[in-house]
Simulated scan of single mutants.
Amino acid sequence: MKGFIFEELNGGASCRTYLIVSPRTREALIVDPVLEMVPGYMQRLAKDQLRLAMVVDTHTHADHLSGGRELARMTGAVHVGAPAGSVQRPLREGEVLVVGDVRLTVWASPGHTSDALVLVMEDRVLTGDTLLIGATGRTDLPTGDAEAEYFSLQRLLSLPGEMLVFPAHDYGGRTFSTIGHERLTNPRLRLEHEAFIRLMSAPRTEKPARLAEALAYNTRPLEARDEPAEQVSVF
């Protein structure tokens, strides 16, 4: 893959949003945008005269409002990913997203949610809420499944150790990890299958502060005016 621009847009906040740009075509993709941050994303696109081609939500977010539909409305980009009834185009296992010279392979990665996805590039993987730095996505929220997450994580661990890991959240100010580092240091990944299931299935009293609001907003049905003018480019 030729060179590309890769930036985290939220200034190190716990919710992570990624901008990926093909310098040759000036086309861009934004992954997991936050609604309140959309004006800042628009400023960033305008600064370098970038054309937003795609917006991806890697799963149904339960802790914040997605900015995906608003970005698509403002720019003409195609909103893809999850949840299936609320984006312009759901994504399937094995599809390849193409933005200029940049290619991202879609892996279905259920567990944190049933619709969770990860995006695999040549040297890095955007892990959504499936694999976090030093942790994994919780499975006690709607559509979560500890068994499914265990096998999704095993698949991620099959990637080369030098692969960079960029999650959709981090609560310790860390920017990235690697698959190899997570294999060695992530306590949940060191658990055997049954122990992992017990841990991830244990009841948790704390819930995301905006759980009901976020789920209602992020799963609202797609409206006719939101339909894309053209299909996203995939292999």
Score class of each variant (00 low, 15 high):
30 I>V: 10
61 H>A: 09
202 A>N: 06
132 L>Y: 04
3 G>C: 08
117 L>P: 01
32 D>P: 01
78 V>Q: 00
66 S>W: 06
56 V>I: 15
142 P>R: 04
38 V>G: 06
157 L>K: 12
208 P>K: 00
170 D>R: 09
49 Q>P: 12
185 T>P: 02
50 L>T: 13
9 L>I: 00
112 H>L: 03
153 L>I: 01
45 L>A: 05
37 M>Q: 15
213 E>H: 09
105 T>I: 15
30 I>G: 00
59 H>N: 06
192 E>W: 00
136 T>H: 05
92 R>S: 15
115 D>W: 00
132 L>K: 01
187 P>N: 04
81 G>W: 08
179 I>W: 05
50 L>M: 10
219 T>N: 04
62 A>E: 00
171 Y>P: 09
231 Q>C: 15
85 G>E: 05
161 G>D: 13
172 G>V: 12
85 G>Q: 02
159 L>N: 03
210 R>N: 10
160 P>H: 08
215 L>V: 12
230 E>L: 15
83 P>L: 02
64 H>T: 10
131 L>Q: 01
182 E>D: 09
99 V>Q: 00
78 V>E: 00
88 Q>C: 06
17 T>E: 11
114 S>Y: 09
108 A>W: 02
58 T>F: 06
97 L>W: 07
98 V>F: 07
192 E>Y: 00
6 F>N: 03
62 A>K: 00
213 E>F: 06
224 A>H: 06
181 H>P: 02
5 I>W: 14
152 S>T: 02
43 Q>P: 07
197 I>Q: 01
110 P>V: 02
131 L>F: 11
120 V>N: 02
160 P>I: 03
63 D>T: 07
135 A>S: 15
107 W>H: 10
211 L>K: 00
102 V>H: 01
197 I>N: 03
89 R>F: 14
75 T>L: 06
92 R>Q: 15
11 G>E: 08
210 R>Q: 08
110 P>I: 01
134 G>L: 06
131 L>C: 04
90 P>D: 00
113 T>G: 04
181 H>I: 09
124 R>Y: 15
158 S>A: 15
119 L>W: 07
7 E>S: 10
76 G>K: 03
164 L>W: 10
6 F>H: 07
189 L>R: 07
64 H>S: 08
54 M>H: 13
28 A>V: 14
202 A>L: 10
200 M>R: 12
203 P>W: 05
29 L>D: 07
109 S>D: 02
138 R>T: 14
8 E>C: 05
217 Y>E: 08
198 R>C: 12
87 V>I: 06
191 L>H: 05
136 T>M: 05
199 L>T: 12
32 D>V: 00
156 L>F: 06
69 R>Y: 11
166 F>E: 03
76 G>N: 08
191 L>T: 05
149 E>N: 13
113 T>N: 04
2 K>V: 10
147 E>N: 10
219 T>H: 03
86 S>E: 03
64 H>I: 08
124 R>S: 15
2 K>M: 10
46 A>R: 08
157 L>F: 14
90 P>Q: 03
94 G>P: 07
1 M>I: 10
72 A>M: 06
107 W>G: 06
176 F>K: 07
15 C>I: 12
90 P>K: 01
91 L>I: 12
226 D>S: 09
